[in-house]
Amino acid sequence: MDKRLIWLAVGSFTIGTEGFVMSSLLPAISADAGISLPQAGYLITAFALAYAIGAPVLTTLAGEIDRRRVIAATMALFVIGNLLAAASSSFALLLTARIVMALAAGLFAATAQATAVALAGPEHRARAISIVVGGTTVAVAFGAPLGALIGAAFGWRGTFLSVAVLGAVAAAILWLRLPRGLRGTRLALSQRLTAAVRPGIFPSLVTTFLCMTGHFAVFSYIAPLAMEGAGLGIGVLPGMLLAFGISAAIGNLSSGYVADRFGAMQTVLTVLALTAVALAMFSIIPLFVPRPLAGLLLIVAMVPWGIVGWAFAPAQASHIVGVSPDLAPITLSLNNSALYLGIAFGSFIGAEVLRYGSPTELGFAAAFFEICAMFSVLLFQKPAALAAARAA
C-alpha cells in the first residue's frame, strides 16, 4: 500500500472531525455568542449548503490544476478557517469561517479520492478510495468524541485550534510527499447536471436528500436533546458520540457485504425502515420514560442508530453506480451533494422544531423524513431503476 494514502486519510479525518463535532459545541457557542440554539444551528446549515453547492463548482474549475497544489491549498484554507473560527469575535465571523471550511472540505474530498486512485492504479481503485473515505469514518468514531472532550475541557475554541494544528501537519506532509504533475480531466458543470436527469438517478438523489434530512434533524441537536430532553450533563456528550461513532463504523463496514448479499435496493429499504424506528425512539424515550432511566436509554439508542444509519450510504452508492456505471464518478459526486443538501435541510428542520416545539419532538420529525425516503424508493427510485435496466 502506498503510504501517501494514509496522509490523504488523515486529511479526511481532520475535516470529518470538525464537521461531526459541531453538534456537541453548539450549546457552548450559543451561550458565548448570546444567541439561541436554533440560530447556532445555522453553523451546520451554512457549512452543508456551501459544501453541497461549492464542491461540484470548485471541482469543475480545478479539474486540470496540479492535484498536489489543490490538496495543499485546500488543507491550508481549511486550517485558516479553523483559526478564524477560534479567534472569531462575532457569530457572523464564525459563520464565515465555517463557509470557508466547507468550500475547502468539498474540493479536498473530491481531489483526494481522485489522487488516491492515481497513486494506487486502476487495479486497486476501490481499496484506495476506501482508505481515504475511511478517514471520515474514523473521524466519526473517534475524532468527534475527542473533539467534544477537548471542547468540554478547554472550550469550543480549543477544539478549532486542535483541528487547525492537525490540518497544518497533514497539509505540510502532503505537500512534501505527493508527486507533482498529477492532473485530472476537466468536466463541464453542465455534464454533471445532465447526469442528474438520467433515468434512475434523480429519484435516487431525492432519496439520499430525504434520508440525510432525517438524520441531521436529530444529530445536529443531539446536545439539547440529551441535556434538556433526558437530563444528561454536557460531560456525557463525548461518550454518546463515541458510542454513535463506533456503531457507525460497524454499520458502514457491514453495509457493503449486506448489499452484495441481498441487493442494494432491498438493503436501502430495510435500512430506511429501521432508521425511522431508531430515530423515533429519540422522542419516545424522553417523552415516556422517567429520568434518569431516560438518559441511560438515550445513550444506548445511539448504538442501533449508528449501525443502521451509516449502513445507508454504501448501499445507496452501490445502487447509484449500478444504475449508470459509465457515469459513476459524476453520479457519486451528485449523490454527495444531495447528501450535504440533506444535512443542511435537516439542521434547518431541527432548528425549526426547537424554535416552535421542544427537543423531545426531534425524533418524530426525523422519522417522518425517513418514511418519506422509503416512499421515494418504492414510488420513484425502484420503478426508475427497473426502467433504466430494461432500456439497457
Results as ranks from 00 to 15, higher is better:
Pro304Thr: 10
Ala388Asn: 07
Ala344Glu: 02
Met101Asn: 14
Cys211Trp: 13
Val117Ser: 11
Gly214Val: 07
Leu237Val: 03
Ala170Ile: 02
Leu225Ser: 06
Ile80Leu: 13
Gly34Lys: 04
Ala344Val: 06
Ala273Val: 15
Met281Gly: 13
Phe91Gly: 04
Phe219Gln: 04
Leu37Thr: 04
Thr275Lys: 01
Ala110Met: 08
Gly322Cys: 05
Ile99Trp: 12
Pro286Ile: 14
Ala366His: 00
Ile320Met: 12
Thr270Trp: 12
Ala92Gly: 13
Leu94Met: 13
Ile234Ala: 11
Ala373Met: 08
Ile80Arg: 01
Ser89Lys: 05
Pro314Leu: 05
Pro27His: 02
Gly155Pro: 05
Met265Pro: 04
Gly143Ala: 15
Gly214Glu: 06
Arg4Val: 07
Pro238Phe: 02
Arg261Gly: 12
Ala328Phe: 01
Ser204Leu: 07
Pro286Tyr: 12
Ala76Cys: 14
Ser347Asp: 02
Leu298Pro: 00
Ile234Asp: 14
Ala144Gly: 13
Val218Gly: 02
Phe13Asp: 14
Ala85Cys: 12
Ala366Lys: 02
Arg180Pro: 03
Arg68His: 08
Leu174Lys: 08
His215Asp: 11
Ala366Asp: 01
Phe209Asn: 03
Asp32Thr: 05
Ala196Asn: 06
Ala317Trp: 05
Leu272Pro: 01
Val289Pro: 10
Ser333Phe: 01
Gly19Cys: 05
Ala87Glu: 12
Phe47Asn: 15
Gly229His: 00
Val133His: 04
Trp7Ser: 06
Gly229Asn: 02
Gly184His: 06
Leu287Gln: 14
Ile307Asp: 05
Ser90Arg: 09
Ala366Glu: 00
Trp310Leu: 13
Thr275Ala: 15
Val132Cys: 14
Gly363Ala: 11
Gly229Lys: 01
Phe160Val: 10
Glu228Arg: 13
Leu193Cys: 09
Ser190Gly: 08
Ser36Glu: 06
Ala196Ile: 02
Ala114Ile: 03
Leu237His: 09
Ala110Ile: 08
Pro359Thr: 06
Gly322Thr: 03
Ile201His: 00
Val323Arg: 03
Phe244Cys: 08
Gly306Trp: 01
Gly251Met: 01
Ile307Phe: 00
Ala217His: 10
Leu241Ser: 06
Ile6Val: 12
Ala50Ser: 15
Gly54Lys: 08
Ala110Cys: 06
Arg125Pro: 09
Gln39Leu: 15
Arg291Ser: 14
Val79Arg: 01
Asn336Ser: 11
Asn336Thr: 12
Ala126Pro: 10
Thr59Cys: 11
Ala366Ile: 01
Phe368Arg: 03
Leu241Val: 10
Ile44Ala: 09
Ile80Gly: 04
Ser24Met: 00
Val163Ser: 11
